[in-house]
Design a protein around this nucleic acid. Structure first.
Ligand SMILES: [Mn+2]
Ligand SMILES: [Mn+2]
Length: 551
DNA sequence: TCACTCGTCG
DNA sequence: TTCACACTCTCGA
DNA sequence: GAGAGTGTGTCTCGACGAGTGACA
């Protein structure tokens, strides 16, 4: 953990990163880019370094509007000239009459807004003036907005950065997601994020058609719009939004996203009591919890036998373990209502123990950890980091193996198909061989992989929690059969089985014990029960400690 | 005056 | 772009 | 007491500084 490595970057580092992004996308997606995007690329390439850099600086900042006085960078020599150049190339616009005044008012500080306000008002309106000085910035903005001021009222040129949408598309094409951006480059250069040196596949593209790009963006825009709208919790607006949801997509990744949005909207409609429309939307989604929600709505509507039929589907072809269990519970409940025979549900028999601890104000998990330390245990508060970490070490080379379409850029923490069934299917032989080697204890390179890969970003490994001593002690306490079973469970459903691992793991005289801590009012979650059941089957010591604070 | 948030930047 | 917990409410063993 | 529903606090890369607004 040595952070004192002051990496010094060239003053124009961000231009090189930006150029790299543009070059990569042009190479890979040349034929899918629009005329406008090609024009943008070509125009950009002819700009002077100063103009390029100022443009990138603006693209990297928040918002679309800027005050010229707020654009000052030591590495850009002649800002005024750069602005002129960008204006004449249509990369910037200046002081247009139809701009939204509220967005521009946000660029000014409260004292500046007060000055603008006073210039527009005669000085005899003193009473109001005093009130505004005390007011919040938002109120002041509203007061100025009410006077519908012209752009000239700001006494300073305002500029607008153009073609932000092109950058959004380029980032999407490059990263293949919505959350990584230009800052990823500098974080990597500084060594804050280190990625595995896997083989990037330049032949496989995420997007095959222009249409997919456009659908992706419009779906994201729709989802973002809904995010805002859903805060209002109004039935009328939500119903209207539902009418604007798009039809099916042929491309699976898009279709998944579309169904996620359907589930979100349908869930809100259900909360608002709009059961028919909610049912309709859930019907168009195969993603959990679509079937569960349909059953619950049908139950509320007293349509018990229809609900039971959906339960049967959940049980015969469950999407995951969670859905199977929920289906079981709901089927049980509905069968009783319909006077059908029901099988007695099997109860869990976990080791439960109540601990009475002095109230200390610290996290309940830490209090329990200290309790066990006093009894001579070496305790680690790991939650999901331990077994997930072992998974990451055991399969490191397979996770980052070169599989077509798995790696699109150098900044991935997992292959694209990590959380889909394709991950196992396409690496079956390698995974089976590794799993068997672990089962027979002939693969035992946990620490070697740890030393070799320490610090490299892997979606499965949290290096801060997973220490070498923890790895060593854990694998020495578990036999091959137990490790095999745990890793198989993660591999069976990497997306859902990642979570629910016990809070604490502890060691004493060659013995390993897992403890799930439950504070007052907390109970075991379904995913936690599933891991505890596996520990039980494997003959491992796992217990649930309920904590009562001592008064 | 001071704690806190937010945006910026390497 | 989660995951686990805190808190509340409602049933039905 | 279990199950269900809803909401919240964490994750954020971290240093830094301007601005804000609640306090005296
Ligand atoms: Mn926990
Ligand atoms: Mn816990």
């Amino acid at each position: 953990m040595t952070q004192n490595t002051p990496t010094v970057l060239a003053p124009d580092y961000y231009r090189h990163n930006f150029d790299f992004l543009l070059r990569s996308v042009r190479q890979q997606y040349h034929d899918l880019l629009s005329h406008s995007e090609h024009w943008w690329l070509n125009t950009y390439s002819r700009l002077t370094p100063d103009a390029k850099q100022l443009y990138i600086r603006m693209l990297s900042r928040k918002g679309r509007y800027f005050r010229v006085s707020k654009l000052s960078y030591p590495e850009i020599r002649h800002t005024e000239n750069a602005i002129e150049e960008l204006l004449s190339n249509k990369f910037l616009t200046c002081n247009e009459a139809n701009w939204p005044v509220d967005e521009i008012l946000d660029l000014f500080t409260k004292p500046e807004l007060l000055k603008i306000y006073r210039e527009k008002h005669s000085p005899d309106a003193r009473t109001n003036d005093q009130a505004l000085k005390q007011a919040r910035k938002a109120d002041l903005t509203a007061a100025i907005l009410a006077t519908s001021p012209a752009i000239s009222a700001f006494n300073e040129p305002i500029i607008h950065v153009e073609h932000q949408a092109h950058l959004t598309i380029f980032l999407l094409l490059f990263f293949g997601n919505q959350y990584q951006d230009l800052s990823q480059f500098v974080l990597t250069d500084l060594g804050l994020h280190i990625f595995e040196n896997y083989q990037v596949d330049p032949t496989t593209r995420l997007f095959q058609q222009r249409q997919h790009i456009l659908e992706w963006l419009s779906l994201e825009a729709l989802a973002a719009e809904y995010e805002q709208l859903s805060l209002s919790k109004r039935a009328q607006a939500t119903r209207q939004f539902a009418g604007r949801l798009p039809g099916p997509c042929t491309w699976p990744p898009l279709e998944r996203r579309r169904q996620r949005l359907f589930n979100r909207v349908a869930r809100d409609l259900e909360r608002l009591g709009e059961y028919d429309l909610a049912l309709f939307l859930f019907n168009h989604s195969a993603l959990p919890p679509s079937r569960e929600r349909r059953v619950r709505i049908l139950e509320k509507l007293q349509r018990h036998s229809t609900a039971l039929a959906i339960c049967r589907q959940m049980l015969s072809a469950p999407f995951n373990e969670e859905e199977a269990e929920v289906g079981q519970r709901l089927a049980h409940k509905l069968s009783r209502m319909l006077n059908l025979p029901v099988a007695q549900a099997i109860k869990d028999t976990f080791t439960l123990e109540t601990l009475t601890l002095p109230a200390s104000g610290e996290r309940v998990e830490l209090a329990v950890a200290n309790h066990y330390r006093q009894a001579g245990w070496r305790v680690h508060y790991t939650e999901n980091a331990l077994i997930c970490g072992l998974f990451g070490l055991a399969f490191w080379d397979i996770i980052f193996a070169s599989v077509s379409g798995a790696f699109l850029n150098p900044f991935q923490r997992a292959p694209r198909d990590m959380y889909h069934s394709e991950f196992s299917e396409r690496r079956r032989d390698m995974l089976t061989a590794r799993l068997n080697a672990i089962r027979t204890e002939s693969w035992n390179h946990w620490l070697a992989v740890y030393q070799q890969k320490q610090g490299i970003t892997n979606d499965w490994v949290n290096w801060a929690i997973l220490t070498p001593a923890l790895v060593e002690e854990t694998v020495s306490c578990l036999n091959g059969e137990q490790l095999y079973a745990m890793l198989s469970r993660l591999l069976f459903d990497p997306r859902h089985n990642r979570s629910g691992q016990p809070d604490l793991v502890m060691f004493k005289s060659g013995h390993i014990q897992w403890v799930e801590v439950k504070g007052p009012g907390d109970t075991l979650q379904a995913n936690q029960k599933r891991w505890l059941r596996l520990f039980q089957q494997l003959g491992l010591d796992a217990r649930v400690n309920h904590v009562v604070w001592q008064m």
